[in-house]
Design a protein around this nucleic acid. Structure first.
Lengths: 214, 214
DNA sequence: CCGAATAGTGGCACCTGGTGACAAATATCG
DNA sequence: CGATATTTGTCACCAGGTGCCACTATTCGG
């Protein structure tokens, strides 16, 4: 059982030669150096001094390595929703939780930018992303369902969850293209548009970045 | 030039043995019979009496065959937007064009249901779909951009286009799961939620299907 | 100290999707 | 008939991914 992280430290058996984190670092470095497509799994494995077969014991696919420990990150997303007091309006809760999920410290930002430009720029990863984002949507949909009284898989929770995701992705893309803006402000602007699509004017407070660069 | 459909009828050269449409029909039948993953390209090619290599001259990938002539369908989507008179509000135009894009005659519906349950149910196709939907988003974003005065790749058009897509996909999924509802009404309900997320109540007119089945 | 149990690793064969290159087949036109 | 144009088939090849099995390195018990 290689993928288990939360389990108790193993005592017997041959110790692992590498780790998910090490493979991730090596892979991301190679992706940035010579591109995602041009980097083969063999390259990554060789970089870690490991066989190709072993790589696939740590990551189910070459795509997955670009996501790192997204599941762990998602668990924090869920925790944010769980911590929302009942008196907070659904609309506000969604906004705050999405912002909190995407709140990174300054020293994490370069990593984030590198990772996200991979995920949003490489078409194979772009395609793969919908599979990873499904869990994100489920968390949002469940929260909305609980708040509104609808079943999680019905129209209201699904439309809100999926469009929330679309909004966040749009914000990330603008943030990546822009290069000078703050991620948080971009997300706030995008969420304002999302929550009130026909009342957000380009001159509005929250939509300061809506004009594009400059 | 095999993929060209609109070109003038060729006169010289060896005539094609098959066609995109024939391959599509054979492939869809096989997908429904034994599943997408279990159907190999070799199977499809053999079904059409053609070599594997030839299949890839008609379709760039096994995924693409499930989409059929989506590009042609997209051209009609664009045409709908082009035909919108300037006095129609943006909000209304989006709603009407999306509904028109998804307006199918009764005899097309079984085909559509079959195709969409493939596209939304098979994870490989689900992933691939974002690449095909990008063109859909571009059309919507361009329209919004033109109407609002923003550049197409800025926040307002992107958020609206992507969330519109998310909304339509959510409607399709509900429609597929439900089995008894009308696609158009499901889309109308979803679009109502999308356009006015916090005013749509489960008892509202447009959200009749929002409760889920039964 | 030696052997059993445990758990990760490496190598191999194999499948599938996808591509490039080149010769062969089949049509029309002069 | 011959030149030309276009499709087709074959073959070789690459990359991602999986199943299988032997091997290796560790800890624990006698």
């Amino acid at each position: 059982m290689l993928v288990s992280v939360g389990g108790p430290a193993r005592t017997t058996g041959r110790p692992p030669v590498t780790s998910r984190a090490e493979l991730e670092h090596i892979a991301l470095a190679l992706f940035c150096e010579k591109g995602f497509e041009s980097t083969t799994v063999k390259d990554i494995a060789r970089g870690a001094g490991v066989s190709r077969r072993t790589f696939f014991r740590y990551y189910a696919s070459k795509n997955d390595v670009a996501w790192g420990d997204f599941d762990e990150h998602l668990a924090r997303f869920q925790a944010h929703f769980d911590a929302v007091p009942p008196e907070v309006p659904t609309e506000t809760a969604l906004r705050e939780c999405i912002l909190a999920f995407n709140d990174f410290s300054d020293d994490e930002l370069p990593w984030l930018r590198q990772r996200m430009s991979l995920l949003l720029g490489v078409s194979a990863l772009q395609a793969h992303s919908v599979l990873r984002y499904a869990a994100w949507c489920d968390i949002v949909a469940n929260f909305v369902a609980q708040r509104t009284g609808h079943a999680p898989r019905t129209l209201v929770p699904q439309v809100l969850a999926r469009s929330a995701l679309a909004t966040a992705v749009a914000a990330y893309e603008r943030w990546l293209e822009d290069g000078t803006s703050e991620l948080r402000e971009m997300l706030e602007a995008a969420l304002s548009i999302w929550l009130r699509p026909w009342t957000s004017s380009p001159a509005g407070t929250g939509a300061r970045f809506a004009r594009g660069h400059r």
